[in-house]
Design a binder for these strands. Structure first.
Lengths: 225, 225
DNA sequence: CCAATCGGTGACAGATTTGTCACCCTCTCC
DNA sequence: GGAGAGGGTGACAAATCTGTCACCGATTGG
């Protein structure tokens, strides 16, 4: 069973994360509320993943992260950083210190679960991360190209981001609002038809495989496995 | 199952390695006997590890290695170099060209197995990075965005691909023809000025950091670390 | 079956991206 | 210093991309 270390000083948040993760899959959860505690627990338990809030009393997230990266034992543990939305400096610093992934608060529980699953699967099953695959599709993050059985299709950057969202978690419904948030950064604007249009364009490019993108009426879209 | 490419012109050696590896763990083995063949197979199979003899007919190991490092797809594949015992210069050169590990012939089978296992494990965690960094730049493959100290910059897909090529191997000169091949798919067309223009546009977006992209006259471009 | 809502789709115009070219500067080699 | 090649740059037009809208058909609930 994969183990996850959650580092946040607010108990509610730890609880929230923990509950949401538990609902989806069997994880063993370890919690820590400050940086020092986090480091100690990371070294003792060697979790498969660490979810790290940046705002911590005493020792901040970056420092924790840097320490983790220094130790050969904890060096390869993937880290998801939690930052306040819009705090650009935080995100930058997070990236700078080499976080494997980051999420802005408040976050959608669904997104969290997906990212966790992704990172864990990656580190467990040795999946190369530059190519994301689902069903007949292989999406290459380096060339921004989509490979289907025979063909090799160029995607525009919007299409790429949209398809990436879908393909990263095959079988999981991506809600309209989430997609709009992730691809366009829209946080309200739910009334736009832009998403629909782009889905249509994607389906066209996918050709006969176009119906792999399933509409879930009233909710969003999903790509089948 | 991890796959390993063994490059050596002597069949006995390939056999020896292959047998010893197979005894310990389940690997899928691919073999090549000369440099060109090695490159071709590396690109096609994208193995998890390459064991590369330095003494090869026609194209020597360093050259193969250098070529591997130039291509985004093969760049991250760890390489174990095989050198003749005592040839200090060879070892130096091997390390210099960025081999992940090297072994002197004749080698102990046990050692080989251990090193292979080690490198394969390590490369797995390296691959799970969605953010490529060099110097002040962080390139996020998921959002197609470039993060610099203060700013967060949107890139067009062409710019993204171009910058990715450069940033993936900081300090390494990327030849014009290679860039044209990798970003545009052009295989001849060396006379085009498109590359120059895009480099210019990138430099503009990079602002004061623009001169991080260094021109190597007559050869290509390089991004400093 | 009807009305209401949701999603699919074609069209379109504005915005953006892209490749090319001409012109000029710089570097290199005599 | 001069010729020649390579590279920088601004401009520009073509190609592409993108968001919006109007109009439909499909689905849903009554």
């Amino acid at each position: 069973m994969p183990s996850i270390l959650i580092v946040d000083d607010e108990e509610d948040i730890r609880e929230l994360i923990s509950v949401n993760l538990a609902r989806e899959e069997a994880y063993s959860i370890i919690e820590a509320s400050d940086g020092l505690d986090a480091l100690k627990k990371a070294k003792r338990h060697l979790p498969d993943l660490i979810i790290l809030d940046l705002m911590l009393p005493e020792m901040d997230g970056y420092t924790v992260h840097k320490q983790l990266r220094k130790d050969a034992q904890t060096r390869h543990i993937p880290v998801i950083m939690l930052t306040a939305r819009g705090k650009l400096e935080e995100r930058i610093a997070g990236l700078e210190s080499g976080a494997d992934d980051y999420m802005t608060k408040p976050f959608s529980p669904k997104e969290l679960v997906l990212r966790v699953r992704n990172l864990i699967r990656r580190s467990v099953s040795k999946e190369s991360e530059s190519v994301v695959a689902a069903g007949p599709f292989r999406l290459d993050k380096n060339s921004l190209k989509l490979f289907m059985e025979e063909e090799e299709i160029d995607l525009t950057s919007t299409e790429f981001k949209l398809l990436l969202c879908l393909i990263e978690s095959p079988g999981v419904i991506q809600e309209r609002a989430d997609l709009l948030q992730k691809v366009w950064g829209y946080s309200d604007m739910i009334q736009t038809r832009t998403l629909d249009t782009h889905i249509k364009r994607l389906r066209e490019k996918l050709g006969t495989n176009g119906n792999s993108i399933e509409t879930v009426r009233g909710v969003g879209y999903r790509i089948s496995g």
